[in-house]
Design a protein around this nucleic acid. Sequence first.
DNA 1: GCAGTTTGCGCC
DNA 2: AAAGGGCGCAAACTGC
Length: 568
Amino acid sequence: MQIAATYDPEGFRDRGFVQAITDDGAEAGPARAVADLEAEVAALEESGGPRWVWPATADIAPALLRRGVRVDRCHDLALTEALLLAYEGHCGEPRSLGAAWARLHGLPVPEDRAEGTMAAPADNPTTQPALFEPDRSRLSADVDPLRAVREVYAEQLRRIAATANPGAFRLLVAAESAASLAAAEMAHHGLPWRADVHSQILEEVLGPRPLDGSPPREMVAMAARLAEALGIRALNPDSAAQVTKAFSDAGVKLPSLRRWELEGIDHPAIPLLLKYKELSRLYSFNGWVWRDTWVVDGRFRPEYSVGGVVTGRWAARGGGALQIARRLRKAVIADPGWLFVSADAAQLEPRILAAMAQDPGMAEATQSDDMYSALAGVFEGSRDQAKLGLLGAMYGQTGGGAAAPLALMRRRFPKATALLDDAAREGERGRLVRSQLGRTCPPPSQRWQSAIAGDAEADAADDSNRRSGQVARARGRFTRNFVIQATAAEWAEVLLALLRQQLRTLDGPQLVFFQHDEVLVHAPREHAAAVTEMIIQCATAAGRLVFGPSPVRFPMSVHSVECYGDAK
DNA sequence: GCAGTTTGCGCC
DNA sequence: AAAGGGCGCAAACTGC
């Protein structure tokens, strides 16, 4: 059964409307106004788990979770709209229910409300329900909201049926919707984070916390040593201009201040500069201010944005959730009696390539848990060369140390190479490419379009032609990588959706973190073994769902640990 | 003086 | 011959 549900766009956020609908979005019962939509969802969920068809999970799920309501399945109209718009070549157009409804009726389309930067938890404690969630449905007051849900849903089903592979697209929509539920649950649970351990790390590396907000002891000391090594009185190592000038005065020309460039330069001040950058990064990115802002009641609660990246990866706002520095993972410690089951897909992207391209040689290599080692023989006995060849092909690298392994890649894995080259060529011509399930890249930007068009302009200056070529090739690298990254992201979302279902059969384990190809489940100790088994099975099932019968293996590297820092 | 852009880092 | 894809964030820098 399916139930359309929406808040009253005009009223207080508790009020809403519900109505049973058929598989194709027609009315299957009376429309009902309810005084407390969340209570209504809870009751209906209790009595048999419908599929909820609603404007946006992100708008309702946090409130439901605060009231202890967990929803089994949904169809997220906004996320689906975004997938369909991209498929149809209109990536980036407004995707709210109101926008979709307006497009359907040829009316002016409202802009989406910005997702906005998340208020830090100190200002907006998640433990305290906000009086109003932002209404992102953008539905105008004179529209019957249930009618809008039904009509947009029915239209989406028609548009899905019109895609080249409706079954695949349906899976994509289901996975994306399930992922939106998982994201809300992870934000709700939060990642266990020990503020005291975090402080300990900071003090070991930076010295005691300065009380007045000035830079900590070790940074000041390193800056002083750096100045001394350069023979000057003082400098601000954060200022590129000052650093470049100081090295120049010392007779060293720096091509840039990138770490990998600096590492190739022989000067006694270079290691000091690198060390300073390391300290500075920790201090400014994950220092005491970060901890005070983002760690509340022993939990780090970022806000995830499902579909926030064009490739289908999640984005996160607030606290740099998807860039938790490895050294800080020591502060991620399970509650007493609990463990983290940490799982990451080993070498996901080359496996995705092997499955998409149905390349027999690469598929054979996926039988191994370490593809690169399995392929070392092909790459003159070097695991590193194998890795360079595979990654270089997927990222569109051409020169440098990758040239030789890329040539081998081309010769030994022609089907895989052809898939990537085709994607790159399509991109260079300004065309769209799609993932395995149908997620579609954005059309070329204005800059790309004029650059690609500029190629044809006979009287364009050489300089302009060269720039055009560069821009077109950059687009080619993007589309080349898009097909792989987007398919990897959807494989991971399918895995997450399956795992979320499985975990519901246990009492206790919670998804607390997801990062592209890695999941973290916080589980009572006695459930860790069962969770481990579930993850491994879900990975295999995800491969079958996304690719059908395929010899390609998707092994997971799974560890049960008390501390996330010990996971790898 | 403020807002937008650039640079560089680190995560995948 | 050849600048490897995606992101978020902080500080410096640039332009108005």
